[in-house]
């Protein structure tokens, strides 16, 4: 495992002004790059920095899910904060794409992240750099509606081709949950022994 600080400086040096911000998420380096440098980031990562392994590409929607029909005391859905906050290295808006690449020889990895415009969700495709990006970008396209420019064929991967909407966006409701609420946190009554919020010792 390479030292995180040296890794950060190596990556920021190699990427130059493409880097907007960098941070650490529990031992993993997160680097946020400019959207127009997304593909060149991949090229630098693979060819210069030696990150030869593509772990995944995924999207994220930072908008909190709209609360629909939540009644008092209903714990069926874990209540999330209602204001929009962004993760490590920040974000310009609601959508982000993040990708994790690793090196099989240096045994190090980095998560790259870039912002996606909400009105016109377009990202550069990584397929020409990492061929494995093909399916990840197709999945991301159907789940979030991000258009990967330069992808050979953005077809549905998981969902039927007639499917409408982008299921992983936070405003896409999980209908099953709204029709029939989940039992939620049922195990809230005190334990027979009498210990409650304090915690329990499993090995007692």
């Amino acid at each position: 495992m390479a030292d995180l600080a040296t890794l950060t400086s190596r990556i920021t040096d190699a990427l130059g002004d493409a880097v907007l911000d960098a941070g650490e998420a529990r031992g993993t380096l997160v680097v946020r790059v400019r959207p127009d440098a997304w593909r060149s980031t991949a090229e630098t990562a693979r060819r210069t920095l030696g990150f030869d392994y593509l772990s995944f590409i995924a999207g994220i929607d930072w908008m909190p899910a709209p609360v629909v029909g939540l009644v008092e005391g209903d714990t069926s859905t874990p209540a999330q904060p209602s204001d929009m906050t962004f993760g490590v290295a920040g974000s310009a808006g609601r959508f982000q794409v993040f990708a994790h690449v690793q090196s099989t020889t240096q045994h190090a990895g980095v998560t790259f992240r870039t912002d996606v415009d909400e009105a016109d969700p377009r990202v550069e495709s990584w397929v020409s750099v990492y061929p494995g990006a093909d399916w990840h970008e197709r999945e991301c396209w159907e789940m979030y509606g991000f258009v990967f420019e330069g992808h050979p064929s953005l077809r549905h991967l998981y969902l039927p081709s007639e499917f409408e909407g982008h299921p992983l966006r936070k405003d896409f409701p999980l209908l099953a949950r709204e029709v029939k609420p989940w039992p939620g946190l049922t195990d809230v009554e005190p334990m027979p022994g009498g210990d409650d919020e304090a915690g329990e010792e499993g090995a007692a």
């Binding site: 529990r26 993993t28 490590v88 990895g109 919020e197 915690g199 329990e200 010792e201 007692a204």
Partner: peptide, 22 residues
């Protein structure tokens, strides 16, 4: 030998943050 469970609150709330575990 020893316990098999750390001290954990009854209702698990995970602090804000991100983690990647492989």
């Amino acid at each position: 030998a020893g316990p098999i469970m750390a001290k954990v609150p009854r209702i698990i709330k995970v602090p804000e943050g991100e983690a990647w575990v492989e």
